[in-house]
Design a protein around this nucleic acid. Structure first.
Length: 329
DNA sequence: GCTTGTCGCCAAGTGTGTGG
DNA sequence: CCACACACTTGGCGACAAGC
């Protein structure tokens, strides 16, 4: 119990810099007297902890002790931050840093835990590089200097100049104020503001980046998770969305629900099929989603969607009615 | 004067080893 | 298995020193 508390004490001091005995006692759920004895024990064990007396005093570790204790470098520390997702480390080009950081973490474990960790790595595999059909799931760890430059600016809190290619538009240079970087599945996004307006950029569409010396305009405290939720909500409710009325076989309802942005209304017809009012990102998205359901769905409205699906179906029917062009294949 | 660390003392609780 | 002794841990208290 005490050994655990001594470790916790060191970690608290590393995390907060300086803490009073009263605060440490509250955090560790012991008396101040016990904290003082623990400090004494740490000091006797060679931990460079020192006391500042008087008002606003407290205990702190000598500068430098932090890095000596862990041996982690900048990239490794960063890799542990994104370690919740190996994909995150891949997107940031930190896969090798994550691997070496994990080695150090495992190495720091007591011998009994170390064998457990080694055993676990032989029994558990999370997010392999390919799926069962050998399709590659994890992006190559690229020496992506552009992503690295973006990351540098984000961490340094500097403005950033990016050469960005938006969908169906020629690439343009623009200067942005970075807020943070978000990874979703294999995709990285730069959250930023441009002339005070919120902007979200896909990292794979950033063709070049240049960190500027000027500090970025960024709120002191940002809840990145919340910012991402707000932007994704805005994305889902904005743009060229279309609403479709469709009849769907109940067995394919979930397939449609997965691809649609939202289901606005739902009822059941006499024959058991579902009548759904569904919104999609745009017309192409709607056409693709209905086409995927094949004979298990029928678009009732709008007319242009029925026409598009009719064109696809007749083209396909004509093709298969005719003799093959290349008989030898 | 107030806040905070330092030190010593005592008592109670807890864990561990040993003998019957 | 149980009782006992011992060591260790913890909390509380008080007096004092140091810094703001």
């Amino acid at each position: 119990m005490r050994a655990d508390r001594l470790v916790s004490l060191v970690l608290l001091l590393r995390q907060h810099g300086q803490l009073s005995a009263v605060t440490l006692a509250r955090e560790l759920e012991v008396s101040t007297r016990t904290v003082l004895r623990d400090i004494e024990a740490l000091s006797a064990a060679g931990v460079p902890v020192y006391a500042e007396r008087g008002r606003h005093g407290g205990f702190a570790l000598l500068p430098g002790f932090q890095t000596e204790l862990t041996g982690l470098n900048h990239d490794e520390a960063l890799a542990l931050v994104v370690a919740g997702s190996r994909r995150g480390a891949q997107v940031f080009g930190l896969g090798s840093a994550l691997a070496s950081a994990m080695l150090k973490v495992v190495d720091a474990l007591p011998a009994s835990y170390r064998s457990t960790a080694a055993g676990a790595s032989q029994r558990l595999l999370i997010d392999p590089e390919t799926d069962l059909l050998s399709r590659r799931l994890v992006t190559e760890e690229s020496p992506d200097t552009t992503t690295a430059e973006v990351l540098r600016a984000v961490l340094a809190g500097h403005k950033l100049r990016i050469h960005y290619a938006a969908t169906d538009q020629p690439a343009k240079w623009r200067t942005v104020d970075p807020i943070g970087v978000v990874t979703v599945r294999e995709q990285g996004y730069l959250l930023a503001t441009r002339s005070g307006e919120d902007r979200t950029y896909r990292l794979d569409r950033v063709l070049a980046a240049e960190e500027l010396a000027e500090p970025a305009e960024r709120p002191d405290r940002v809840d990145l998770d919340r910012a991402w939720q707000e932007r994704s909500t805005r994305f889902r409710t904005g743009g060229d969305q279309v609403t479709v009325l469709a009849r769907v076989n109940p067995i394919r309802r979930e397939d449609l629900a997965r691809t649609a942005l939202a289901i606005l209304a739902e009822s059941t017809d006499e024959d058991g099929w579902l009548r759904l009012e569904v919104t999609f990102q745009d017309s192409r998205h709607a056409e693709w989603a209905l086409w995927q359901l094949s004979t298990n769905a029928e678009a009732l409205a709008p007319p242009w969607l029925r026409a598009a699906l009719h064109t696809r179906a007749t083209t396909l029917a004509t093709r298969y009615a005719a003799q093959p062009v290349h008989k030898d294949c």
